[in-house]
């Protein structure tokens, strides 16, 4: 019986599931305003915590956040944490080696309380330090898409 309970590899057939995640009204405003090179956040009317990207409910004081609470932030900020990646995922369960290491930073924009995670370019990995002043880099033509934000570079 031993041979029958042996475990074998099962050959797979191709199947990929596709998703279209709705972003909601606040995130839509954020994405749309990228076209005019603006970064939108919200200042919670209850506790004053400033979120970027904007959202409609405060996770700190539970207040409802409305459109009138939207604020415009500068593209300047401070690196609060970072990591360096040497491999990426190919979406098929495999790793790909990166030719150049990629730096991902947690950035706190001026006047914001939350952080955003973005690629950091224009600096050698060994030179990156917490507290580094960074600035947002737009792609050449902004269209109101998340890809409008290309990366951050040292200011």
């Amino acid at each position: 019986m031993k041979s029958e309970s042996e475990i074998i590899d099962v050959k797979t057939l191709p199947f990929t599931a596709n998703f279209i995640w709705a972003t909601g009204f606040m995130m839509q405003r954020f994405i749309e305003e990228l076209a005019s090179r603006k970064i939108l956040g919200v200042k919670c009317p209850g506790c004053g915590y400033t979120y970027v990207p904007p959202r409609s409910r405060c996770g700190k004081c539970y207040a409802k956040i409305e459109e009138e609470n939207l604020v415009t932030l500068s593209g300047k900020g401070t690196l609060v944490s970072y990591t360096t990646g040497h491999v990426a995922l190919d979406g098929q369960g495999n790793f790909i080696d990166l030719q150049e290491p990629a730096i991902i930073g947690a950035i706190k924009l001026e006047d914001a309380d939350s952080t955003i995670f973005m690629p950091i370019e224009g600096i050698e990995p060994r030179d990156v330090v917490e507290g580094l002043k960074v600035e947002l880099q737009w792609r050449e033509e902004t269209k109101g898409e998340l890809e409008d934000i290309r990366c951050f570079k040292p200011a």
Binding site: W21, A22, G24, M27, S56, R57
Partner: peptide
């Protein structure tokens, strides 16, 4: 419900 994202809908 394309007017909200999952988090908004659940909250």
């Amino acid at each position: 419900r394309r007017d909200v994202n999952v988090a908004e809908m659940v909250s």
